[in-house]
Design a protein around this nucleic acid. Structure first.
Lengths: 110, 110
DNA sequence: GCTAACGGTTAGTTAATACTTACTATTTAA
DNA sequence: TTAAATAGTAAGTATTAACTAACCGTTAGC
């Protein structure tokens, strides 16, 4: 299907519900594989395979700690999607308005 | 897989390469189904099915014009993804910096 | 009226990919 | 040094979902 773009990996990775569940588990900080796997209704090897896909998409990164593999969210994949989506907003002005709103919202949170 | 969120539809829709190809064809304006289908290496019925998925995700909308169905990009689905992704940026400050950069970039384009 | 153009739907097939079981490697602790 | 804990890999199966072929409905033009 034509040339493979970087965002193909990312959107493909987030296209699966189980992988999203895994990704969302890391929302509040790094976790080891056993912790990620618990609660999910797939086996641990399946989780490992999903982690690999997420990692190749740069949505998460891994750090070895003894016998544990600690996974955390990585910004690069997220940025890739954001840039992709930015192609489709209808005009820079609308986009700016939206970004401004979100920026403001974020600042109010702090 | 737990409760179905709105972003599930959107991320699932953009998780397929053929659907992304279709979506990207609409980047520069509305198109009829035959125009969308040409160049793609799947049959027209397949395109119709993909269009349905994209439509249910609110990534595109349709407007009947005589015997033609004209499809165009819809903001709602895009917004859904953006809001989803915003959960995962590491802190509002970093996010702000990023948004500011992008905003600036967009303004420079005009 | 009839015909052509356009496009959605259905049923069945094929292809992709998510999943499990079994195995292996590495590290830590007893 | 043996055993337990952690996690990655491989092979094979099962499930999902993308796809095609055939069909139907609608609109427009002759």
């Amino acid at each position: 299907m034509s040339a493979l773009k970087k965002y193909d990996l990312v959107l493909n990775a987030l296209g699966d519900a189980t992988r999203r569940a895994i990704f969302e588990k890391l929302e509040n900080g790094p976790l080891s594989v056993v912790h990620i796997a618990e609660g999910l209704q797939v086996t641990r090897p399946a989780v490992s395979q999903h982690l690999k896909v997420l990692r190749e998409a740069k949505l998460i990164s891994m750090q070895q700690q003894g016998t544990r593999s600690i996974y955390r969210i990585e910004q690069e994949g997220l940025l890739e999607i954001r840039n992709y989506l930015d192609r489709f907003w209808d005009g820079a002005l609308d986009n700016f308005k939206l970004l401004a709103e979100q920026t403001e919202r974020k600042l109010n949170e702090k």
